[in-house]
């Protein structure tokens, strides 16, 4: 029964024109960033390397490779993808309540728990497909346009050079982690969707929550750094970047296959899973007992 309902939920998602807006938007944004970096990539890199231009020969043309462009694209757009996820997940219950189809679904033999879990699973599959699409354009496209080379990752306080043989698994891990983070956003949107009878409400609310916590994180003031931020999901959503922070030996040489402080990544992943579980659990509890009046 679950499989049949999941199939129908996916069928509905992918028969809806709105779904393809997200895929189209991602393709356009990625292509625009690739075009911009093709034209002004050197200036973009100089922004990061300016302080070291007097000390080092900066191999700008080598730095500007497919892997670097892909990381730049992920930096630029992954923070906005929650909006695209909320568009679908926030609509899952509230959208159907708004259009009146929810009562038809809820009157079917499948339990509400099954229905909700199928909707959550469909949202998760949508997230994964969206990320695969992004990977195809951002990674595949960038490698095609800019070629392969070692990856240079800039942080506020240091830079990491990762040899190209050691890069691909990091992208795979980063995309999996991003899927985890966006699934949590889908769970949040689904939870808010359960309370609403209008799709716009949960979509806007989800985006607002992400924006508020991102601002708190960017403020970097102690009052939030020590209280909210360690537990804020937006802090841990950035964990995908952790796969591009590499460990080095005492002599400064990077260790292939290493990740700087992997336990922090494990903790962040666990927190995201915890939030996802919590949001789905609360959504299920509320939805199971909810009177469908619309």
């Amino acid at each position: 029964m679950f499989g049949a309902i999941l199939y129908t939920e996916l069928f509905k998602i992918f028969r809806r024109p709105r779904t393809y807006i997200s895929f189209g938007a991602i393709a356009v944004i990625v292509l625009l960033v690739q075009f911009a970096l093709r034209v002004n990539g050197t200036e973009f890199i100089r922004f990061f390397t300016d302080s070291q231009a007097d000390t080092f020969e900066i191999p700008e043309s080598q730095i500007l490779n497919g892997y670097f462009v892909c990381v730049a694209i992920l930096h630029l757009i992954l923070i906005h993808v929650p909006l695209l996820v909320a568009l679908i997940a926030g609509d899952m219950i509230a959208g159907e309540a708004q259009t009146g189809t929810l009562r038809m679904l809820a009157a079917q033999p499948a339990s509400r728990t099954t229905l909700l879990l199928a909707k959550f699973s469909a949202s998760t599959i949508y997230v994964i497909l969206l990320l695969l699409w992004m990977a195809l354009f951002a990674l595949g496209g960038s490698l095609l346009l800019f070629g392969q080379e070692d990856l240079v990752v800039f942080r506020e306080t240091d830079l990491h050079i990762i040899s190209q043989q050691d890069v691909l698994w990091r992208f795979i891990a980063a995309f999996i982690y991003a899927a985890l983070a966006l699934t949590m956003i889908a769970a949040l949107a689904l939870l808010l969707s359960v309370f609403a009878e209008n799709a716009l409400g949960p979509i806007v609310a989800t985006v607002c929550i992400v924006i508020v916590f991102t601002i708190l994180q960017q403020l970097k003031v102690p009052v939030f750094e020590q209280t909210i931020n360690p537990w804020s999901f937006t802090t841990h959503m950035l964990g995908w970047k952790g796969f591009f922070y590499v460990e080095k030996t005492s002599e400064g040489v990077t260790i292939n296959g290493s990740v700087e402080n992997p336990m922090a990544l494990v903790r962040s992943g666990a927190i995201l899973i915890g939030y996802t579980f919590l949001f789905v659990l609360v959504a299920e509890r509320v939805y199971r007992k909810k009177d469908i009046l619309c």
């Binding site: 302080s51 070291q52 922090a264």
Partner: peptide, 26 residues
Amino acid sequence: EFNTREFKLPKGTTLDYDNGSSKVDA
């Protein structure tokens, strides 16, 4: 052996993931 300048980007430019390593005072 050579002298290096401090490497620092403006805060918020890269929106780094805080894995605890930056808390060790460089």
